[in-house]
């Protein structure tokens, strides 16, 4: 169906992730930006949770080995088919033999490429998502590589699909907000599980100083650097469960925002937790850009989570 010519920085097969296996040490994995992921599937007429390619940072090029219908969502990445610029957040018909280029995004950092019919890949513990650290799901647990030939999961007639979806366009007001690469991004958090361990002055530092995303970031977590957040004690607490959004502070005082592939338990205190709508906002912030954390209370956080889930659920009805 397609041959990968340039695989980008880190591209993997993802869906909405695996649920219910954390007890066995298995993180959920799954799309870092669930809204854009779901939108990509809807735009090509797929089921909502069909496997897509998640491309971190763009620079993905492939050749279509048959007629296909695709959609590119997430960060604002220019798309070229046979050199001609196409729009994101819309279905695109790609003729057999065409070269498709997904460039580096101008805004945002994570891109989803959906193909009508879905991409054939390994279904493990209820999910197609790739977990590269333990090498399972997706393409035998590996990231997408140059020369990979990906196949459709189900045979589809691209021309028929196209007739059905060609007028689909994703409403602007439902798209996730994206950080600007130049400005600081404000990220909403609640206080974390171990906020008691941090002195008042450290909490103040955390909420008043900007933190820059470092290049050592990946799907496990974004490592930040900035004014160290200090706390007494040896830097470890009794290991406890972790999920995406938690912000760990190791003994060097440089926070880590955990993401979908994070380890399921850990022993560094968690100062705060990013609320669900803002987790994709962190994921879309590229290395070198800066985050600033603002506190919301727990009721507000729950209300925002609810609104975010409602918006996500409404995408089924495009």
């Amino acid at each position: 169906m397609m041959e990968v010519i340039l695989p980008g920085l880190f591209s993997t097969i993802q869906d909405e992730g695996r649920k219910g296996y954390r007890t066995y040490g298995v993180p959920s994995s799954g799309a870092l930006d669930p809204l854009s992921f779901r939108a990509a599937n809807v735009l090509v007429g797929n089921k909502l949770n069909e496997a897509c390619i998640e491309i971190i940072g763009g620079m993905f090029r492939f050749k279509a080995l048959e007629d296909i219908v695709i959609a590119v969502t997430g960060g604002e990445a220019p798309v070229r088919v046979k050199g001609k610029v196409e729009k994101g957040w819309r279905p695109i018909f790609v003729e057999k033999g065409s070269i498709v280029d997904i460039m580096a995004p101008l805004r945002g950092f994570i891109i989803y490429l959906a193909v009508a019919g879905g991409i054939s890949s390994d279904f493990v513990m209820g999910s197609y998502s790739t977990y590269t650290k333990a090498k399972f799901g997706g393409l035998k647990g590996e990231k997408v590589k140059k020369g990979d030939v990906l196949n459709l999961k189900a045979k589809v007639n691209a021309k028929e699909v196209w007739e059905r979806v060609k007028d689909f366009e994703f409403p602007d007001n439902k798209r996730p907000s994206l950080p600007s690469p130049k400005d600081e991004t404000s990220v909403r958090v609640t206080l974390g599980t171990h906020v008691d361990l941090f002195p008042e002055s450290s909490i103040k530092t955390f909420f008043s100083e900007p933190y820059e995303i470092t290049p050592e970031s990946d799907r496990m977590g974004y490592r930040l650097k900035g004014t160290p957040i200090t706390y007494p004690g040896g830097g470890r607490v009794t290991s406890f469960p972790l999920i995406e959004g938690f912000i760990q502070v190791p003994h060097d005082g440089q926070p880590i925002v955990l993401l979908a592939d994070a380890q399921t338990v850990g022993g560094y205190p968690v100062i705060a937790s990013v609320i669900p709508p803002d987790i994709p906002l962190v994921a879309h912030s590229r290395p070198g850009s800066r985050l600033r954390f603002t506190e919301v209370n727990r009721d507000e956080a729950e209300e925002e989570a609810r609104k975010w889930l409602e918006n996500l659920n409404s995408i089924a009805k495009l």
Binding site: K19, R22, T23, T238, S239, F240, P241, I243, E302, A305
Partner: peptide, 17 residues
């Protein structure tokens, strides 16, 4: 949605809807 046990604590993930 999910409950994760550890040594002396657990984490519960729920659907606020």
């Amino acid at each position: 949605e999910e409950v994760v046990p550890a040594y002396s604590s657990l984490l519960l993930i729920y659907d606020p809807l």
